[in-house]
Each structure stands twice: as C-alpha cells, then as structure tokens.
Simulated assay, not measured.
Amino acid sequence: MAAPTLGPTARILRLLDLLQSRPTWSGTELAERLGVTTRSVRRDVERLRELGYPVRAEHGAGGGYQLGTGRRLPPLLLDDDEAVAVAVCLRLAAGGTVVGLGEAAVRTLAKLDQVLPARLRSQVEAIHRSTVTLDGPTPSVDGTTLLTIARAIRGNERITFSYNAPRGPSERRVEPYRLVATGRRWYLLAFDLDRDDWRTFRLDRMEEVESRGWRFRPREAPDAAEYVRRAISQAPYDHVARVRIAAPKDAVERVVPASVGTVAADGPRHAILEAGGSDLRWMALHLGALPWDIEVLDPPELLDVMRGMAARLTRAASAAAGPEG
C-alpha cells in the first residue's frame, strides 16, 4: 500500500518521527514509508541537519540513517504520551521536588503548556492532582498559578489577583516582571499599579490569578534576585542588623540562606551580613551561633542585647564550674 502524499513540512516531521522510533533506517525503507524517492530522502535529511538534528549516514551492509547526539538541542518531536510525561515531570520539578530545576522547569512548562492540546492538558492536570509529594511544612504553589504568571511575564501582560497578606486580603493589579525561587518558596517581583512602586508577592498567598490580555510596555526594573532577597530578609522586620564577619563572602553564603540575609564582600577575608528580625534577643542568639568572629555595625541596641546576654552566659558558666578550690 502506497504511503499518502505529504507536504514538505509534514514529510520532514514524519521523517524525524521515524528516525526517533528506532536506531537505524535504510534509505529505501524511509522512501517507502514517506512515499518519495531515495533522492528526496537525502534532501530531507539535509533539511533536518540544517535544523540542528545530527543525522548520520553510514554506507554498506548494515548501514543506513541514524539520529545521533548533537552539540545543541534541536526542537523535539513528542507523541501524546511523551508530552504528558514531560509535562508531569516539569510540574514536579517546578514544585521544588528536583533541587535547582524549579525556575527552568517553569519556563519550559510555560512553553510546552502553550502548545499542549486541551485533551493532553487535562491528562496532565489529572495526574498532577492524584500525585502526593512528601514535603516539609513549606507552603505549596498551585501549578496553574505558576503557568499563568510565567505566560504573563513572557507576553508582557498585566495580571490581577487576590493577595492574602498578614495584614489582611487585598485585590492587586500588577505588571509581572520576574519569578524568583528561594529555597522551595516562590516570589513574584512586579510593579504594583495601585501603589505605583515595585513589590514582591509570595505565590502561595496569591489566589484567583488572571491575565486578561492587557499588554504593558516593560519599564526599567531593579535586579530581581537582589530585590527579592532584600525584601524577604529585611522589609518585614522591625530591626535590620549589619554585621562584619571574619570570613569570605562565599563561605558565609554557604551557611546563611538567601532568605535570611544578604551578604556582600568586604575585602577577600571579610563579609558584611545584613539581616532583619523582630526580636533583638533572637537575632543576637543566631548571630552568636555563627562559626566566625563578628563585629556588630548596626544597630547599637543589638550590641546592648549581646552584652547582657554575654554577661548572663558568663555567670551561668561560672556557676556550672563550681567554686575553685
């Protein structure tokens, strides 16, 4: 039975599908499957190579066309089951189950979700809802919320949502700029239209996120990672401490999470830590637990608390040692 006649683009995609389905094809076999001549097969193979697919051709007995490993990643051709599997895995990675892949997973998932047929999207959603991940107390983030925001950022579209802040719920209209993952918590850096300023939002506190197609012209924005880091480590607190630490910046960053404070180099052997807190006593306790010598630069009240704590600890140590004799 002759193969149906395909247009050039459809034939290229069909050729790619065949090459992915088994290790080796002869030119004659491909010609029969595609309904063309072996000369057309050679021409189509060259078009695949131009697109970045490393198609090898080996002559002689046992030879044929093979899809090899290339230097860059060309477009992938996925069947329904493969697309669903990739989308499910990306959703799990976006939720933080794969360390270091959260942001990349969201970007990739946004691209895939844009072209995923509705029938496959429903399968992905069903699998995702029936999957339980053993997580800690970290708040979960809805996958649909992530995708809606990611697509809005990509298309420069405003979003609206309800935000459950500690001081009470509110309705927000923003221009989304960047998604930032820190640990296993997601934040959005956006320009708040009603407050006429940049703001950060925790995704697990966002509900009813919608993008209605209102486009905006991107404005000059702060560095997303640095802005979010400062916002979550300083802005919510009553006190902000500045401490000079006798250790290199990279060593301090390995001990102090980005969600706790910001670290800046102060020469090759010292670093400046800025961190916020609502209780000076707890701040003194945590800073005193760092494995290096520290110098408190600000605020002065933190020094007073540390002196009082040091005196109490000294008395407790002396009482535990007992009278000398």
Rank of each mutant, 00 (worst) to 15 (best):
A85R: 06
A231V: 04
T314D: 10
G60A: 06
L147G: 00
L6W: 02
T97S: 14
L273S: 07
A190F: 15
L16D: 00
E253R: 12
G52I: 15
Y163F: 02
A2V: 14
L77C: 04
E207T: 13
E301N: 03
I272R: 08
T314S: 11
T9S: 02
V132S: 11
L78K: 11
L302G: 00
I12T: 11
P117T: 07
F201G: 03
V260Y: 09
A310K: 14
L13S: 04
L273K: 08
P236L: 06
A316E: 13
S21V: 13
P300F: 12
V180F: 03
L30T: 02
A165Y: 13
V84A: 05
P117S: 10
D81E: 14
I245F: 09
R184A: 13
L188G: 01
M306A: 05
R254E: 15
G136L: 13
T145S: 06
W186V: 04
L76W: 05
T182I: 13
R72I: 12
E210P: 05
P176W: 03
T145Y: 03
P176T: 02
S318L: 10
G27D: 01
S130L: 10
D304G: 09
A289N: 14
S26Y: 06
L297G: 04
F191V: 12
A258K: 08
A165P: 06
T144K: 12
R205K: 13
A83V: 14
T314A: 14
L290M: 10
L109E: 02
W186I: 12
Q20N: 13
D293C: 03
E171H: 13
L188M: 07
R244I: 11
L188C: 05
Q234K: 09
S318D: 07
W214H: 05
R121N: 01
A93C: 05
S259M: 03
E125R: 08
T97D: 09
R129N: 10
M309I: 02
L189A: 04
G100P: 14
